[in-house]
Design a protein around this nucleic acid. Sequence first.
RNA 1: GGCGCCGUCGCCAAGUGGUAAGGCAGAGGUCUGCAAAACCUCCAUCUCCGGUUCAAAUCCGGACGGCGCCUCCA
Length: 471
Amino acid sequence: MLRLYNTLTRREEEFAPLRDNTVRMYACGPTVYARAHIGNFRTFVCVDVLRRTLKYVCGYLVREVVNYTDVDDKTIAGAQQAGKPLREYTEHWIGAFRADAGQLGLELPEETPRATDDLNLRAMSDMILTLERNGHTYRRDGSVYFKISTLPEYGKLARLDHEGMRDGARVDVDEYSKDDPRDFVLWKASKPGEPSWDFGAGPGRPGWHIECSAMALRLLGEAPIDLHAGGIDLIFPHHENEIAQSEGATKREFARFWLHVEHLFVENEKMSKSLGNVYTLAEIAARGHRASALRYLLLSSHYRKQLNFTWTGMDQAEEALRRIVDFLARLETVTAAGEHPAVRQAVDRARADFRAALQSDLNTAAALAAIFDLVRDVNAAIDARQIAAPDAMAVRAAIDEFDQVLGVVSLRQAEDAQPPVPVEEIERMIEERKAARRRRDFAAADAIRTSLADRGILLEDNPGGTRWKRK
RNA sequence: GGCGCCGUCGCCAAGUGGUAAGGCAGAGGUCUGCAAAACCUCCAUCUCCGGUUCAAAUCCGGACGGCGCCUCCA
């Protein structure tokens, strides 16, 4: 049984979908005005592992919605600056996001709606009209606001202290038009030069929070949905306001489980543009690192702990992953017939440990340890010749199974399949080197190895022959 | 001012009452034309001080240190 920490209750709870063995989940996606940074991707990678755990460990069906926020102050400003229509401008950044997501091995969610799709704008307007009928709103200067005093439950997710948050708390003073500073806008009145739609709530554009409520319920069906996820900073105000909107409109609980991923730091500092430490995947690659290593690094600690990104951390991740990939290559060399119960036992143990780790609030660090335990045991078995081909296949199957969830080995192998030197050339040089070694011309053999190494290809002489791999 | 989190080997990181997983790096050894890979051995008593307990890294109290949210933010 999967146990997940639920922000709503601040406790770990057993998770199961409400109906049909299908998990209906929603995760807040990116605002598409720039390339997403690695902090964003920490959240998306963790949500991806959650998704895969639900599917491959728990055996549930998953229906996941991840939105693209394609209308807000930043996207509008960006489009204006670029001199492009909003839709075209955001299209470009959606493409960039999908490319990065692909490199990081993120599974595609079932739905990736855009806020400005007509169906979604209509759903938002309908929800606002319902909120209006339910007495949760007021209008001012063409905008529609949510009146939080109409919802006694307001603040239950963030555990807001309604009295205590005055001194020191910075309150938005320029929003003078609101009754209460913490009331929030559902629909913004149209302004000259800004895109505007009218699906019943009046001419204007959506506020920040309404899209998620409307799209989640439109695409996932009746409330409550099973699970809602996002970065920890979204707890307040975004998720709190999503709850207010959804519950105010449907009069039912919005989401049963809330899962929040802690922040990624860079060299012990919060990522911020002024510090110049906001990295994108492209910048990681420019430093010679691979997406697979970043994914590994992101999974090497628990999602509810702050993770400090460092370049030495990336190096360590590269090496750790290499150990697994080298191991898999070595497994291929096992050809003996027979069967060894000790290997099977190690596989069974790894399976049990791996599963238990993920079921325990997605403990990916412990899950990785289960893999390394297996790697060590089986490597020792190979050295001792206490393993046969069928055993090796069983080991391979287990690792494939683990990687369905972690998604890190297959990613690395796909990268390795595209070496910096053409495969035919590598193979030709291996042959030349083999000939040199045969005539005991080790100087020539080593020269070949060195020259390939300089071009990013390492050679490894094994009993069965020479293997190449990317540096 | 309010709410909350964290402090485990040189680095990363599990473990949250039963006597310290795993990875990286390092030392010694085996194997190897050399190298690589692999294996074996070695490498921490958990920030500090008190307390509870037969037993605490794990619970309680305090100190010190780091961080988050309350405002756009994954």
